[in-house]
């Protein structure tokens, strides 16, 4: 169906203690017309991958503030690949230095949103870049 809303998983991997930002994003994307599955704090890459698979999402959004992005994000990307979820888009939010951003893009991260990115910008990016699938 062409009017199927885009389905997004918002997860917070790693040991960050709070998920205020992730929740604000989840609610914001809902208000932008997305179907948002929220999985909460302290998600392992395995949990994120299983949720993405079962929910059959178009996008996995990872919110990482702990600075552990260079260990967590590649593991999620690799697990998604290994599980066959090659058509799922991965985007991340957090404070990501430019050098790291380049490397993350090279392993398949489609979008990186730093502090100050508005929800409308994220929404626009997803609408423009989510790929067609059956």
């Amino acid at each position: 169906m062409t009017d199927r809303p885009i389905k997004v998983l918002i997860a917070k991997p790693g040991l960050d203690g709070h998920d205020r930002g992730a929740k604000v994003l989840a609610r914001g994307l809902r208000d932008e017309g997305f179907e948002v599955v929220y999985t909460g704090l302290r998600q392992t890459p395995e949990m994120v991958t299983t949720a993405a698979l079962q929910e059959d999402v178009d996008v996995v959004g990872l919110s990482i503030l702990s600075g552990a992005h260079m260990t967590l994000v590649p593991r999620v990307c690799r697990l998604l690949q290994e599980t066959g979820l090659t058509d799922v888009m991965v985007v991340i939010g957090g404070i990501i230095p430019d050098v790291d951003a380049d490397e993350l893009r090279s392993i398949g991260v489609a979008g990186i949103f730093g502090p100050g990115t508005t929800i409308a910008e994220v929404a626009e990016f997803l609408r423009a870049n989510v790929r067609a699938r059956d």
């Binding site: 989840a26 809902r30 017309g33 179907e35 929220y38 909460g40 395995e46 949990m47 079962q54 929910e55």
Partner: peptide, 29 residues
């Protein structure tokens, strides 16, 4: 779903993620 935007916040899964690793459990929002 929101009748206005069509969006939805599917938050039930948060409470069930402990079962994510179990192949005999399948959760769908």
């Amino acid at each position: 779903s929101s009748p206005i935007t069509g969006g939805a916040l599917l938050g039930d899964r948060v409470r069930m993620q402990a079962h994510a690793a179990d192949a005999d459990v399948f959760i769908r929002s």
